[in-house]
Amino acid sequence: DSWHDTVDGIELELHGADEELLKLAKELLKRGVSEEEVRRIIEELLK
């Protein structure tokens, strides 16, 4: 799946992010949310 590559990229960027955020990112990508949107959501949550 192409979203796996996206998640791997996000995981590299979010090496400090907790497991729950990564699960959320994967779930959003699986549901068709764009990579940009996922990054934006996670950045908001990390604030």
Rank of each mutant, 00 (worst) to 15 (best):
I41M: 05
L14D: 04
H4D: 11
D1Y: 00
L24A: 02
A17V: 15
V33S: 03
K26M: 08
E44P: 03
E36K: 09
K30T: 05
E11P: 05
L24K: 03
K23D: 03
G16M: 07
E35N: 07
A17T: 08
E44S: 12
K26D: 03
L12R: 04
L29Y: 05
D18Q: 09
L28P: 00
E37A: 09
G32C: 02
I41E: 01
A25R: 10
D5I: 05
S34M: 03
S34V: 03
L45C: 04
K23E: 08
R40E: 03
I41W: 07
R40D: 02
A25I: 14
V38E: 00
D18A: 10
E35C: 08
V33G: 02
H15N: 13
E27R: 15
D18Y: 11
E20Y: 15
L14G: 04
I41V: 04
H4G: 13
I10L: 15
L46F: 06
R40C: 02
E19L: 11
K47E: 05
H4I: 13
L12C: 05
L24Y: 12
L45G: 02
E36I: 11
D5Q: 08
H4S: 09
I42E: 00
D18N: 14
R40A: 08
W3L: 10
V33N: 04
H15D: 11
E11N: 13
L12W: 06
D5P: 14
E27K: 14
L12T: 05
E11D: 13
L12P: 05
R40P: 00
D1P: 08
G32A: 02
E36D: 10
L12I: 14
E20P: 05
D1N: 11
D8E: 12
D8Y: 02
D8W: 02
E35V: 15
E36V: 11
S2Q: 10
K47R: 13
E13D: 09
S2V: 07
V33K: 07
L29I: 07
L22W: 14
S2F: 11
L14Q: 04
E19C: 11
V7L: 09
E43Q: 15
L21D: 00
G9V: 12
I41S: 01
E19Y: 13
S2P: 11
D1E: 13
S2W: 14
L28W: 03
L46M: 13
E11H: 14
D18I: 07
T6G: 11
K23R: 13
K30S: 14
D1I: 09
K47V: 08
R40K: 08
K47W: 13
G9N: 10
I41D: 00
D5H: 05
G16I: 13
R31G: 06
I41L: 06
A17H: 09
L28I: 01
K26L: 11
E27C: 15
L22D: 02
K30R: 14
V7S: 09
E11W: 07
A25F: 05
I42C: 02
W3D: 11
K47A: 09
H15K: 09
D18L: 08
V38L: 02
T6K: 10
H15F: 06
V7M: 13
E43P: 00
I10P: 09
D1G: 12
R40T: 05
K23C: 02
T6F: 13
L22A: 04
G9D: 11
L46Q: 06
E43K: 12
V38D: 00
K30A: 15
K47M: 12
G9F: 15
H4P: 12
E20C: 04
E35S: 13
L46P: 01
E19D: 13
E20W: 15
L46Y: 06
V33Q: 04
L29W: 03
K47T: 08
K23Q: 09
L28S: 00
E13K: 02
K26I: 14
T6W: 13
E44G: 09
L14C: 04
E37I: 12
E44M: 14
V33D: 02
E44K: 07
W3C: 05
L46D: 01
W3K: 08
A25Q: 02
I41P: 00
E27F: 10
E19K: 10
H4A: 08
W3Q: 12
A25H: 01
L46H: 04
E35D: 04
E27I: 14
V7R: 05
S34Q: 05
G9W: 15
E20M: 14
V38N: 00
L45T: 03
V38Q: 00
L14M: 07
K23P: 01
L29Q: 02
G16P: 04
A25S: 02
L14S: 05
E35H: 14
K47G: 07
D18E: 06
D1F: 01
E35G: 12
K47N: 10
D8P: 11
S2L: 11
R40L: 07
L24S: 01
K30I: 06
A25G: 02
L28K: 00
D8T: 13
E27L: 15
L21V: 09
E43C: 06
E43N: 11
I42P: 00
H4L: 13
W3Y: 10
G9H: 12
E36A: 13
L24I: 06
E11A: 10
I42Q: 00
K47F: 11
E13F: 02
V33M: 10
E27H: 11
H15P: 14
E43G: 13
E13V: 05
V38T: 03
I42R: 00
V7H: 08
R39H: 04
R31F: 05
L45P: 00
A17K: 08
R39M: 08
E19N: 08
A17Q: 08
V33L: 12
G32N: 01
I10Y: 09
L46V: 06
E35Q: 13
W3F: 12
H15G: 13
K47Q: 09
V7K: 07
E27D: 08
E20K: 14
W3R: 03
L29S: 01
G16N: 06
R40S: 06
E11K: 12
E11T: 07
E20V: 13
E27A: 15
E20Q: 13
G32K: 01
I41A: 02
K30H: 07
K30L: 15
V38A: 02
L12F: 10
I10G: 07
L46N: 03
D8C: 06
K26Q: 11
L29N: 01
H4W: 10
W3M: 12
L24W: 09
E20S: 14
L45E: 02
L28T: 00
L12H: 08
K26C: 03
A25T: 02
L14V: 07
K26A: 09
G16A: 04
L21Y: 04
K30G: 09
G9K: 13
E11Y: 02
E19I: 11
S34L: 04
G16E: 08
I42Y: 01
L28V: 00
G9E: 11
L29G: 01
R31V: 04
T6E: 10
S2K: 11
E19S: 10
G16C: 02
E44H: 09
D18P: 14
A25W: 06
E43H: 15
D8M: 14
H15C: 07
S34W: 02
L21M: 10
L24F: 10
L24E: 01
V7C: 01
D1R: 01
L14P: 05
L22M: 13
G16K: 03
I10T: 06
D18M: 12
E11F: 09
L21W: 05
L29M: 06
L45H: 05
K26Y: 13
V7N: 11
K47D: 04
L21H: 03
E19R: 10
D5T: 11
R31N: 09
G9C: 05
E19W: 14
I41F: 08
L14Y: 07
E37F: 08
A25L: 05
L21Q: 02
L12Y: 03
L45N: 01
E20F: 15
R31P: 01
L12M: 10
I41Q: 02
G16R: 02
L12S: 08
L12A: 05
G32Y: 01
A25M: 07
S2A: 10
L45F: 08
K23I: 06
L24V: 04
D5F: 04
A25Y: 06
L12Q: 09
S34Y: 03
E37D: 09
R39G: 03
R39V: 06
L29V: 03
W3A: 13
E44V: 12
H4M: 10
H15I: 12
V33I: 07
E43W: 15
L29R: 12
E44A: 14
E11G: 13
S34F: 03
I42G: 00
V33E: 03
E44F: 15
H4T: 08
E36R: 08
E27Q: 14
R31I: 06
V38Y: 02
K26H: 08
E36G: 08
R31S: 09
L46R: 09
T6Y: 10
A17W: 13
K23V: 06
I42H: 00
D5G: 11
L28F: 03
G9T: 14
T6I: 14
A25C: 01
L14K: 04
V38H: 00
G16L: 11
E13S: 03
D5Y: 02
E11I: 15
T6P: 09
V38F: 03
D5N: 09
R40Y: 07
L14H: 05
E27M: 15
L29D: 00
E13Y: 01
L28G: 00
E13A: 02
I41H: 03
T6L: 09
L22Q: 08
L24T: 03
S34A: 10
G9M: 11
G16H: 06
A17I: 13
T6M: 12
I42L: 06
S2C: 04
K47C: 02
G16Y: 12
D8S: 13
K26F: 10
E11M: 14
V7Q: 09
I41G: 00
G9L: 14
E37Y: 09
E19P: 15
R39Y: 15
G32H: 01
E27N: 07
E11S: 14
H15W: 14
I10M: 14
T6C: 04
V33H: 14
E37W: 11
E13C: 03
W3E: 11
L21S: 02
V33P: 00
G32D: 01
L24P: 00
I10V: 08
